[in-house]
Write a protein that binds this DNA or RNA. Sequence first.
DNA 1: ACGAAGAGTCGTTAGTCTAA
DNA 2: TTAGACTAACGACTCTTCGT
Length: 299
Amino acid sequence: MRTDLNLLRVLLAIHDCGNVTAAAKRLGMSQPAASAALSRLRHSLGDPLFVRSGTAMEPTPRARSIVERTREVIATIDQEILPSPTFDPAESRDEVTFCLSEIGEVVFLPALFDRLRSTAPHVKIRCLSLGPKDLLEALREGKVDAALGYFPDLDAPNIYQQRLFSHDLVCLIRRDHRITDARMSLQDFCELEHLQVRDGSRSQEMYESFLAEQGIERKIVLQMSHYMSMAAIIERSDLVAVLPRTVANLYVQYSSVRPIEPPVEIPPYSLKHHWHARNQKDPRHLWLRKQVVELFGGE
DNA sequence: ACGAAGAGTCGTTAGTCTAA
DNA sequence: TTAGACTAACGACTCTTCGT
């Protein structure tokens, strides 16, 4: 049996008003429309529901038996299901899941964590590092709220993106390195031994292929999968590494290293904020995106 | 994937029926 | 006679089906 919920509103209105005309007026419809709705409900339930008694419409036992429960159901729909959801960051105990690369955690997470802790103290933050395919699936399934960073593979249907800022690359050498210029010469760049982080990120692929296109060959003597211990190795060797300027500036604060401009301008790349179309109007996501844009800009 | 045609639904107005 | 319920006819809209 298929029952139109609007017919139940008519049932309640007739019950409360005592006649079809007043019920129709309350529902903003014509009397024949209300009458027809009653007729459909009678047909649907196999009961007259109301019988005429003088000028009033008297409910049948069947109508009496369903009217209060129907009223509860309609009230639940009107008050709990249909109203637009709201999000109160101060009270929320939700969990927010970001996908960030290792560098993304360095670049985004400290400021993001501070902001979320101060505005949404009960919200838990979870960070994942996923490959392009898994990330796309996680966004589609709602397992990840947002991806922050350089994810060119997320240029996909139903994935929205917003550019935050550009990231450029510099070289990193130890503080008392023999090279003292502000920019490294191409000869030094090619002759020095390099530390290379192969973290599998698309940004790393991008600048590696750029160097290859320029015909620039490096002497790579140390390959690593993470950035974590890079500075500790650079500060006690003559090695040079290429890395995002933001990360280099961070290492300068804690290690005896310094950034130096690369011999050629390596194209900067855009860091973006990605989310699924499903969340475009969601109050929780609107709030989250506002925090990201306020912290990291947005175009 | 897209548009046309038909069926079904639900609203309206106009008029009829019924009970007080 | 009057108020209110009901029916018929019609139009607007939506959905489904079918052909291209």
